[in-house]
Simulated assay, not measured.
Amino acid sequence: MTDVKHTARITGLAYLGLAVSGILGFLVVRSQLYVPGDAARTAANLVAHEGLARFGIVADAVTVLTQAVTAVWFWRLFRPVHPVAAGSIAAFGLVNSVTILVGTMFSATALDVAVRAAPASADQALLLYDLNAAGTSLGGLFFGLWLLPMGWLAGRSGYMPRPLGWLLVGGGVGYVLSVVVAFLAPDSSGLAYALTVPATVGELWMVGHLLVTGVTVRASLKTATG
Rank of each mutant, 00 (worst) to 15 (best):
R54W: 08
R41A: 15
V72I: 12
R54A: 09
N96D: 11
H49Y: 14
Y129A: 10
V47N: 02
T109H: 10
G93M: 05
A118G: 15
F55G: 09
T99L: 07
H82N: 14
T66S: 10
D130H: 04
L111H: 08
A114P: 05
G87T: 00
P80V: 01
T70N: 01
V47Y: 04
A85Y: 00
A91P: 01
L111T: 07
P119S: 08
T109A: 07
R79K: 12
N132I: 11
A40E: 15
G103L: 07
I89N: 00
A39K: 09
A91Q: 03
H82F: 05
R116D: 10
W75R: 14
D123N: 14
T99R: 05
D38M: 03
L101P: 08
G51P: 03
V47R: 11
S97Y: 02
S107P: 09
V72D: 00
M105Q: 10
V69D: 00
A59V: 02
P80W: 00
V64E: 01
Y129K: 08
L128E: 11
M105F: 14
I57D: 04
R76K: 13
N132Q: 15
V72N: 00
Q67K: 10
L65C: 09
A68I: 14
A108D: 10
S97H: 04
P83S: 03
L101A: 15
V64A: 04
I89T: 01
S107F: 10
S88G: 08
V58N: 01
M105D: 06
A120S: 15
G103I: 04
A134N: 08
D60E: 12
A43Y: 06
F106A: 07
A108R: 07
N96S: 12
A118E: 15
G56C: 04
L77R: 00
V72A: 09
A114C: 06
D130T: 05
N96F: 15
N132M: 13
A53K: 05
T109P: 02
A68W: 11
V98K: 02
L52P: 03
P119K: 09
A108E: 05
A43W: 03
L131E: 05
R116M: 09
S107C: 08
A39T: 14
P83H: 01
V113C: 02
G37R: 10
V64I: 15
I57Y: 04
V102C: 04
A117N: 10
D123Q: 15
R41W: 12
A110R: 02
I57Q: 03
V64W: 08
D123C: 10
V72C: 03
L65K: 02
W75N: 05
E50R: 11
G51I: 06
